[in-house]
């Protein structure tokens, strides 16, 4: 074989390599949850025409949160936070989402979107984070008046409570103090019922929906062996519902939990520390009910 021929073959091989690797490169995962803003019953007046969307996208290890709103007051400062809970209930949104639960209440540990609306009362805002929000923990995005929120914080300090406490305390104060004041009269512009205007529940992301459940009937998993996939570092969470007493064993992680006599359910929640494929089985009968995959 001549030198030129060899060179040509080598080039062919190189081109093949680049082609093949390009194919492989496009395989990055991206998932999005989104929700529509609903005006809260306790919202201040003037937001009947508010509409908009919140979207949370996870890609390449980061998270982008975007909101797109119209029907706001023109030229007004607003603030939106990512919360862990859903929109229903006494506390719309529940506590703020935090990457590190015991960490700071400010970005980057929380996701805040601060913006000033345009002259026509519409606006878009975006916040990027270089960490992935676990999907089960992104519950909703709640929109506040920026003023109101700061005022509430100030109120707290005066109230003598430890402001360094968690966000739930903040929300609690929000209701008790503010609720009282609102009864004094609507004329005072600063004293709305609540500074929370609207809430967008992120679909499929509420903690409740994110916990997969394996049903076991007559010693067999309903619908065959369930396949659950996780990424390393995430929390592995799943429930097993059984109709009789059984010991559930997660291999590799070597965790056991008992379903009581007469049936019931157990919930597993543990960090995904070991990569690989693991079985969960009914220990007594040696029947596999789930396959856990922990990807790096």
């Amino acid at each position: 074989m001549s030198y030129k021929k060899k060179l040509a073959l080598l080039l062919v091989a190189l081109v093949a390599t680049l082609g093949l690797s390009a194919c492989g490169g496009s395989d990055s995962g991206e998932d999005t949850v989104s929700g529509t803003f609903e005006v809260l019953p306790a919202a201040p007046a003037g937001y009947d025409n508010l509409s908009g969307e919140a979207k949370l996208t996870r890609a390449d290890g980061g998270t982008t949160t975007t909101i797109d709103l119209s029907g706001l007051e023109p030229d007004t400062e607003y603030m939106a936070h990512l919360h862990t809970g859903g929109c229903d209930g006494a506390e719309p949104g529940g506590p703020h989402f935090k990457f590190n639960p015991s960490g700071s209440e400010e970005p980057p540990n929380e996701i805040h979107l601060s913006f000033k609306s345009n002259g026509d009362g519409s606006d878009k805002a975006e916040a990027s984070s270089d960490k992935e929000v676990p999907l089960g923990e992104a519950g909703s995005v709640v929109l506040h008046l920026a003023d109101g929120h700061e005022q509430m914080a100030a109120l707290f300090v005066h109230g003598g409570e430890d402001h360094g406490d968690d966000q739930a305390g903040d929300d609690h104060g929000d209701q008790s103090h503010h609720g009282d004041e609102s009864q004094q009269g609507e004329a005072e512009p600063d004293q709305e019922q609540s500074d929370k205007i609207a809430c967008a529940e992120l679909e499929g992301a509420s903690a409740e929906a994110a916990v997969p459940t394996i049903e076991v009937r007559n010693g067999e998993p309903v619908g065959g062996i369930q396949e659950l996939e996780f990424s390393a570092g995430e929390e592995i969470r799943f429930k097993v519902e059984g109709d009789e007493a059984e010991e559930i064993h997660v291999h590799g992680y070597d965790l056991m939990k008992d379903i009581p006599a007469g049936g019931g359910s157990v919930e597993f929640a543990f960090p995904a520390e070991i990569e690989g494929i693991f079985e969960a089985e009914l220990e007594g009968q040696g029947v596999q009910i789930a396959e856990l995959r922990v990807n790096p």
């Binding site: 690797s21 194919c23 492989g24 590799g252 690989g276 494929i277 693991f278 995959r293």
Partner: peptide, 14 residues
């Protein structure tokens, strides 16, 4: 108690 994950497509290609 643990099995290997399949080699991902990009590594297979490489």
């Amino acid at each position: 108690a643990r099995q290997d994950l399949p080699v991902p497509a990009w590594l297979f290609a490489w």
